[in-house]
Design a protein around this nucleic acid. Structure first.
Length: 123
DNA sequence: TTTCTAACA
DNA sequence: TGTTAGGA
């Protein structure tokens, strides 16, 4: 498929797809017209890239991780880098869980206040 | 209309 | 990354 279709299917801008290629994350082949051609599974690949970027991984880490996402080969250095990312994500997840708990608390108090018609207790 | 490269706010 | 220029 061409870049426009991949962009529509993934919700990623055409510009971003070209950028991913520049970063070595995507490797489309060029048709005789010079236009980029992507395989069907590029859709999943782009979605994976988005998730990893969103999780805070660098393009370099993603680039080195992608070819090994399926099989189990990875250098000790990459493995250590990925473990560090994993630990970092664990920390973020912990923070998120905490933040969710605080929102839950406010929501609960506000809901209760509505039900009873009494103002929320001041913190 | 879509895509391409290159470069800049 | 968005945007813009200028060509295919």
């Amino acid at each position: 498929m061409r870049i426009g279709e991949l962009a529509a299917l993934t919700g990623v801008s055409v510009r971003a797809l070209r950028y991913y290629e520049e970063q070595g994350l995507l490797d489309p082949w060029r048709g005789p017209n010079g236009r980029r051609q992507y395989p069907q599974d590029a859709v999943d690949r782009v979605r994976l890239i988005r998730r990893l970027y969103a999780a805070g991984l660098s393009s370099r880490t993603i680039r080195e991780l992608l070819p090994r996402a399926a099989n189990g080969e990875a250098t000790p250095e990459l493995l250590e880098r990925l473990s560090a990312e994993r630990r970092r994500l664990d920390g973020q997840i912990g923070d998120l869980v905490h933040a969710r708990g605080e929102l839950d608390e406010v929501i609960t108090l506000a809901t209760e206040s509505r039900r009873t018609g009494r103002p929320c207790p001041r913190p």
